[in-house]
Design a protein around this nucleic acid. Sequence first.
DNA 1: GCATAATATATAACAGGTTATATAAACCGT
DNA 2: ACGGTTTATATAACCTGTTATATATTATGC
Lengths: 166, 166
Amino acid sequence: MVEDFVRGKGYLTLGTRFKRIGDRLQADVQQLIDAAGLAVQTGQYPLLAALDEMGPMTIGDLAAALGVSQPGVTRSVGQLAKQGVVTVRRGSRDQRKRRVELTEKGRTLVADGRQTIWPLIETHLADICADTDGPLLDQLDALETRLQEKSLYSRVMETKEGNTNE
Amino acid sequence: MVEDFVRGKGYLTLGTRFKRIGDRLQADVQQLIDAAGLAVQTGQYPLLAALDEMGPMTIGDLAAALGVSQPGVTRSVGQLAKQGVVTVRRGSRDQRKRRVELTEKGRTLVADGRQTIWPLIETHLADICADTDGPLLDQLDALETRLQEKSLYSRVMETKEGNTNE
DNA sequence: GCATAATATATAACAGGTTATATAAACCGT
DNA sequence: ACGGTTTATATAACCTGTTATATATTATGC
């Protein structure tokens, strides 16, 4: 078999590898979101959660809070507005600014997520990362290995079955 | 100031955060590549390095070796072929397969990278990650903090000046 | 108080990742 | 040896990130 070249290159391919792990994690979380019947894109939950916890914000504030570029936020907000999850309106004092705010639907979405899947994600990811304490590369190895062995989704489902079903 | 929301959410935003760090690392490395006068995209160095070290491969083998999807490799190879860095030809025995091979230009590019910037990347990233040993989230905090304090590029440049210039 | 500079957001173009699906070649069973 | 299945790659459509640049509004200095 052809093996994992990126993994073997250590620090040299760290950027590629971080992105790869991030994609994998987001894909796994998306499964959970879908299974819970929540109509959101994984990548937009942070934006919604920020609005929920910090209140209405401008595009620029969101970009700063999320560590993402302003055009990225503009686009995300545009999509979320189209889905009716947030509203956008011009600032009253400064008309250059746009005030982004959760709609009722948006608040419900965040509340549902917080209740149903957030605890599962936290618990299981903490578990996956738990007993690794070495250097960063070792921890990445362990994380990737464990996600390959059993996806976050499978881990969550097993637990749920054990607890709530016959 | 608005602070870093993603960082504060711990495991919940791990996927987003991994991708963010990966983007940052790749951007930093791209600076080094540009400064060294190498005409490549950071993200494609792993592919080139794999071809260099493992010899000519098919699209599918590359996808497996790099841990990315087959369509992703098809596109990367297409771009690299356009730049004259790799050649692609049908397999002789199995005409479905495409054999991807470094050109002379490609081999030179890898050799140059290996000589000029790879050691710098390894050294400085290892250094940045060195004395952190705790749980994963702490290491991510440390990594992000250090990259914010001083970019990989700055770190490399400082070292070079100290060693090789007046 | 008007011209210029700065700021906030929008838009365009690109990167590189994904999934789903189409196409072409090879394999296989009868 | 031909029809159906499998396999390898290509293509399409989308996501989300980026940078560079345009537009609109506010702030400022003379």
